[in-house]
Design a protein around this nucleic acid. Structure first.
Ligand code: MN
Ligand code: MN
Ligand code: ZN
Ligand code: ZN
Lengths: 146, 146
DNA sequence: TGATAAATGCAATTGATTTGCGTTTATTTT
DNA sequence: AAAATAAACGCAAATCAATTGCATTTATCA
């Protein structure tokens, strides 16, 4: 469970650059995505907050972040809404993701992985393919140590 | 949209062999799975019925079919519950699926494909993999012809 | 500072799926 | 074949994540 240096990111500026107002909750939220190394659900966001916030505001913030290229939806074991940080190349105009996801069947967390080689398929029996999703299911390092 | 011969299957017997009672609706339902070549949602089942049936009975039949190895859940674009027929090897003891799925972004149908080669991965950076899912997204043959 | 747009809170709604329970239908046992 | 047991069904109600409407607050911009 390594932590990457936070690199002194100005989260307010980041929000502005993506066309979003910098409110205290949204600054907290984007920072939370930067320091968490797995995908976040609404409930996990609530658990990380030191104050109360309406779930509706969380859903709206997540939708706005996604629309403006800050985060992307990831698969979740229970089909709940769950998001992870985008690469800096993403914007509202172009969301591009071509990476696999790792799902732990024990703790139910989702991780993005960037160095798994996704097969390239353009066509399958007349079916035109624009996107190929790969989901690796299993048990994460932490959950094996039990 | 080819149709495979129905091969004179005794659907009542098939239900019995899987530990299920042969009611008229369940015979109709398993037959519908056999003659449809894409995965079925609850609404599509209703559209195929010539009489009324409670949605709850459909959900319960689907759960029972899945539990007893007749059908398996497939991914769906809108995260609705959708099922497709299992291979005859499946039973309540052992459900084994190792095939990819094709999702048409236009008509939203899901197809099982059996000859797409799934990458074999047992481990990824300490993460133990038991299952690897592949989803091909694109446009099906019918939808391209518009 | 004042006008305009974005974000928030609260209440209500939506929509798919599940649960409880009494009744009907199918299967098994006498 | 009738009685006993178990499975499936129908209807109403509940669940639960997610969305919507609307009034209020906060942020942005001129
Ligand atoms: Mn990802
Ligand atoms: Mn399948
Ligand atoms: Zn885990
Ligand atoms: Zn299609």
């Amino acid at each position: 469970m390594k932590l990457i240096d936070k690199e002194n990111i100005d989260f307010g500026l980041l929000l502005s650059q993506h066309g979003l107002s910098k409110t205290s909750f949204r600054k907290f939220l984007i920072e939370l995505f930067y320091k968490t190394h797995h995908a976040l659900s609404v409930d996990e966001i609530i658990n990380n907050l030191s104050y109360q916030i309406d779930k509706v505001s969380i859903y709206r913030a997540l939708n706005a972040f996604e629309k403006n290229g800050l985060i992307h939806k990831v698969p979740d074991k229970a089909n709940l809404i769950k998001y992870a940080l985008c690469k800096s190349e993403c914007s509202s105009e172009k969301h591009l993701h071509n990476h696999a996801h790792l799902l732990c069947s024990i703790c139910n967390e989702t991780y993005c992985i960037n160095d798994f080689k996704i097969p390239v398929v353009n066509e399958y029996k007349g079916f035109l393919i624009n996107n190929l999703k790969v989901i690796l299911e299993g048990s994460c390092v932490d959950c094996q140590q039990i």
